[in-house]
């Protein structure tokens, strides 16, 4: 940290107090509470919580539905990340050539960032609807072949496409910014050596994007764990047969519909550890190892 300029005075606690109070009440306390619930079990007729050690975790981890949820969350995370980043990278590389219409292309790709997840889910539910949307056409050819509410793989495909659609803009913004921060002199030197634009994309721009690439990889995976609730809730509702019961969605339904606070808390703790591990990897390894400037 840099040199401070003012001596400590009564102003400092006043300036810090609001943020610390809010964080304590709505961040640290709930996180601690989740820990407490995860290791205790509420008694059925009142009488408080009793300590049960790792019992809640054992129960969660031996539940086949939970592993189903983990499996589909991982599939969702990887598939949306690959799709969204692949598309964002391609578009960013070509938008960065700054041909005529550059601004139009850029706005056209950025705006989906502002669309709320449940709105994305609802729009895609219409698009994928077997009776009304684009797929009703398929169903006139092969009746009953496409139905999200019947076939698990179709429901998973649908949330993956909706999730990827929502993520493209974010990755695009970062890729484009990284591309634009590549020094002009490098590009010009490569051009003088005879590298044509496509060659420069592969041998100059892509390698220089590595730090951004890994940063986005972690952010996208983390987001897919946490940001998927709205899409799942309006698009599939976790079904059919729990095929799209992503981890956050399961925490919500177990906690608020099943009133199983201890089980939901144990799941929250597992998810917290996962998200923290990913963030840690990002700060600790990726930021340090992949650095060119």
């Amino acid at each position: 940290m840099r040199r401070a300029h003012f001596k400590f005075s009564w102003i400092v606690p006043l300036l810090l107090a609001p943020q610390l109070l809010v964080i304590f009440t709505f961040f640290y306390w709930p996180s601690a509470q989740a820990l407490y619930w995860a290791f205790t079990l509420e008694q059925p007729w009142g009488g408080g919580n009793t300590w049960v050690g790792f019992e809640n975790f054992r129960k969660v981890l031996s539940d086949p539905y939970y592993w189903g949820s983990v499996r589909v969350s991982v599939i969702y995370a990887l598939a949306t990340t690959v799709l969204a980043m692949g598309m964002a990278l391609t578009l960013a590389l070509f938008v960065d050539r700054q041909l005529a219409g550059y601004r139009v292309w850029r706005v056209g790709i950025i705006w989906p960032y502002a669309v709320a997840a449940p709105a994305v889910g609802l729009a895609f539910q219409f698009v994928f609807n077997p009776g009304a949307g684009i797929f009703s056409f398929i169903n006139t050819l092969a009746p009953g072949w496409w139905d999200l509410s019947k076939y698990p793989w179709q429901a998973v495909t649908a949330i993956v496409i909706a999730g990827a659609w929502k993520q493209v803009a974010y990755s695009f913004i970062f890729f484009l910014a990284a591309l634009q921060s590549i020094p002009r002199s490098l590009t010009e030197a490569a051009a003088m050596d005879g590298a044509r634009p496509l060659r420069r994309m592969l041998d100059l721009q892509l390698p220089l994007l590595t730090p951004t690439f890994f940063f986005l990889l972690v952010i996208n995976i983390t987001d897919s764990f946490t940001d998927s609730f709205g899409i799942v809730d309006t698009l599939t509702g976790g079904g059919p047969f729990r095929a799209t019961d992503l981890m956050v969605y399961k925490i919500y339904s177990d906690g608020f519909r099943g009133f199983d606070y201890s089980g939901a808390a144990a799941q929250s703790i597992i998810l917290m550890c996962l998200v923290m591990a990913l963030t840690f990897i990002q700060f600790r390894y990726i930021e340090r190892r992949v650095h060119y400037t």
């Binding site: 810090l16 964080i23 608020f256 998200v275 963030t279």
Partner: peptide, 26 residues
């Protein structure tokens, strides 16, 4: 100063969705 900095920094790690049940209780 450093302790408070980190205490605030850590909140970036866990989005609201992840700790939703206890936050609701609060």
């Amino acid at each position: 100063r450093v302790v408070i900095f980190w205490a605030i920094f850590i909140t970036l790690m866990l989005p609201l969705e992840v700790r939703i049940v206890p936050t609701y209780a609060v």
